[in-house]
Amino acid sequence: MTTQAADAASSTKIVARDVSVFYGAKKAIDAVSIDIDQDHVTAFIGPSGCGKSTFLRSFNRMNDTIPNARVEGSITLDGKDIYSSDMDVVQLRARVGMVFQKPNPFPKSIFENVAYGPRIHGLASGRAELEEVVEKSLRRAGLWEEVKDRLNESGTALSGGQQQRLCIARAIAVDPEVILMDEPASALDPIATARIEELIHELRGRYAIVIVTHNMQQAARVSQRTAFFHLGHLVEYGDTRAIFTNPKQERTKDYITGRYG
């Protein structure tokens, strides 16, 4: 098992070592070590219950919010231990943003959805600067042209695909370094899905991106690195092209070719 993808040449953003995650007595993730690249999109794949989402959520301590959840091992962001006592969790979640399966805009205006983060983090002084951040974020999320004339309408009035891009804009607005996406397109139709995938492609390089997906073709399309999880273990991690054309592990092959159990 290699921790680093074989041909990783770019810088490492997140380093996880021997990470285990427990829900009470149940071990959901078992001693996983992985390096997440700054410049590549990393996809986590695996059957339901394999622990991939749990592992993803340990990157910005979302598991802290779950009673009985416990994380062992070390996870560092730019070399700094994110589970150390002096880590500001609110700050961490601004640096490591998250987009969920179901779009979850606040029941507020489109503008407020995006402006909320920068405002509470003090990233903009004054209305003009805030407007600038909102426009920039919506542009990067590929939503600006569709909503620029109705920024005061409710975010929940948008279509599912637009809502998801609004959530991505909201994540981008606080200028994060990493964006975690947990099944960001699984509730969307194919066109909206394609737009999210195109957006991921455009955001690549600016942010380190980790995406959990059940859609094998989607992982193949959007990522450069793929990690396959099974029963809490990291089975194989490597170049996406290699994983999908010539996986080294039998379990990976059986999963991606649809021969699973």
Partner: peptide
């Protein structure tokens, strides 16, 4: 079927 890996090859 969108074959992958050995199926695709």
């Amino acid at each position: 079927r969108a074959p992958l890996a050995d199926d695709l090859r």
